[in-house]
């Protein structure tokens, strides 16, 4: 396994000298690859990446997002997904190709103010993002606790192959749905929710620190008074930073 070199970088910083394959959040200059973001750069062999430490949510096709219906007309819902543009969910996605505004009423399905879980169907920066609710576990959220974290911290909260969120779910007895846009739905016994919120907040504030999962593990063990174990995961990596289902 190649050694991972990691450092804190600022916009403009030279990450590595020489010619490297292009990577997100970087740009190539004559002397090498530079960072576009405040973040942590990782060099693993020929692979370079920058994990941003701040920034707004940029939709990517297939992302799971949690959004709020803010408007609707005869053909589509408009959904705030915590990005620069509201996303659209078309009536045909819900009612099928035969949809006709005369026979169906959009508000009967999702009304203004409803929270929905959806996937990004299409987005390419020149058009507004398009959503779909076709798929298991997608659709309206019926209750639960809603919280927001910085979208760049989402991979950390999910953890490698879901290990972090699973650990919090198991220790607190809740179900956590994490939108890539930083909006999170927590379901479960009302008395269990505050501990899950605390653990998530801890992940957000300490996302840049090494050994985060151990700290969260210790915190949960202390709070619940029992030994919280890390769920089984794949082969151990040097660190579990920025893993998650997005990759």
């Amino acid at each position: 396994m190649a050694k991972v070199l990691r450092k804190f970088v600022l916009p403009g910083d030279l990450i590595v000298k020489g010619n490297y394959p292009p990577a997100p959040n970087t740009y190539q200059m004559d002397d090498g690859l530079h960072s576009l973001k405040v973040g942590l750069s990782e060099i693993e062999g020929r692979n370079v990446r920058v994990i941003p430490l701040a920034g707004r949510y940029v939709p990517r096709p297939d992302d799971l997002v949690v959004g709020v219906v803010i408007d609707l007309n005869a053909f589509a819902w408009s959904v705030d997904i915590n990005s620069f543009f509201p996303a659209f969910l078309t009536a045909t996605d819900v009612f099928g190709k035969r949809y006709s505004p005369e026979s169906e009423d959009l508000s009967s399905k999702f009304d203004i103010g409803d929270v929905i879980i959806a996937r990004v169907a299409a987005y390419d920066r020149s058009k507004d993002p398009m959503l779909t609710v076709a798929g298991p576990k997608l659709g309206r959220v019926n209750g639960g606790y809603l919280m927001k974290i910085s979208p760049v911290k989402v991979p950390r909260l999910i953890g490698r192959r879901g290990s972090m969120s699973k650990m919090i779910e198991e220790a607190t007895g809740t179900r956590i749905t994490i939108g890539q846009n930083g909006i999170i739905v927590i379901n479960g016994e009302p008395s269990r929710i505050p501990l899950a919120v605390k653990a998530i907040e801890m992940v957000e504030t300490q996302a840049h620190l090494a050994g985060l999962s151990v700290s969260v593990q210790n915190f949960l063990s202390k709070e619940t008074g029992r030994v919280v174990r890390k769920p089984q995961e794949g082969p151990p990596q040097s660190d579990d930073f920025n893993s998650g289902e997005s990759e």
Binding site: L10, P11, G12, H34, G55, V152
Partner: peptide, 11 residues
């Protein structure tokens, strides 16, 4: 701007 996570070529 850097704090906002906006992509920048330099400070």
């Amino acid at each position: 701007l850097a704090d906002a996570g906006i992509p920048m070529r330099d400070l």
